[in-house]
Amino acid sequence: QRITLKDYAMRFGQTKTAKDLGVYQSAINKAIHAGRKIFLTINADGSVYAEEVKDGEVKPFPS
């Protein structure tokens, strides 16, 4: 399943989102408010992988 960072954070909370991605909650808040195009893939085992689309390139998040 693929979902935006904002939607994932709204569904699970910023604290869990940060923990799942290995970053601080403040980084999640800042990324959402900056309007960054970050998409999360939720794997069947429950693990989460995030990618950011920037300038036409897709890069892992966090980099």
Rank of each mutant, 00 (worst) to 15 (best):
D20P: 01
K59W: 14
A18P: 01
T17L: 06
P62I: 05
T4S: 15
K6T: 09
F12I: 03
V58W: 14
A27K: 07
D45G: 05
L40C: 09
L21D: 00
E52P: 01
G46A: 05
G56P: 02
F12P: 00
K54R: 13
A9P: 00
I32F: 03
T41E: 07
K59A: 11
T41I: 15
Y24F: 09
A31T: 04
K54E: 13
S63F: 09
I28K: 00
R11D: 04
N29V: 14
A50M: 03
Q1D: 12
Y24V: 14
A27D: 15
Y24W: 12
D7E: 14
V23R: 02
E52G: 02
T41L: 09
Y24M: 14
L5R: 00
P60H: 06
K19A: 13
S47F: 08
P62T: 05
P62N: 05
I42F: 08
Y24C: 15
S26V: 10
K37T: 13
A50Y: 02
T17E: 01
A9F: 07
K6M: 10
P62R: 04
D45P: 03
A31E: 02
I42K: 04
K37I: 12
Y8C: 02
K19T: 09
G35Q: 12
Q1E: 14
Q25W: 12
I32S: 01
K54F: 14
E51A: 05
A31I: 07
K6R: 12
F39E: 04
E51M: 08
F39S: 04
I32M: 07
K30W: 09
S47G: 08
V23D: 02
Y49W: 13
V53K: 06
T41S: 09
A18C: 04
A9K: 05
E57T: 12
F12K: 03
Y24K: 15
Y8T: 00
I3T: 07
I38T: 00
G56V: 04
P62F: 05
I42N: 03
Q25H: 10
Q14M: 15
T41N: 09
K59H: 13
T4M: 06
D20S: 06
I32L: 11
M10H: 13
L40T: 03
G46S: 06
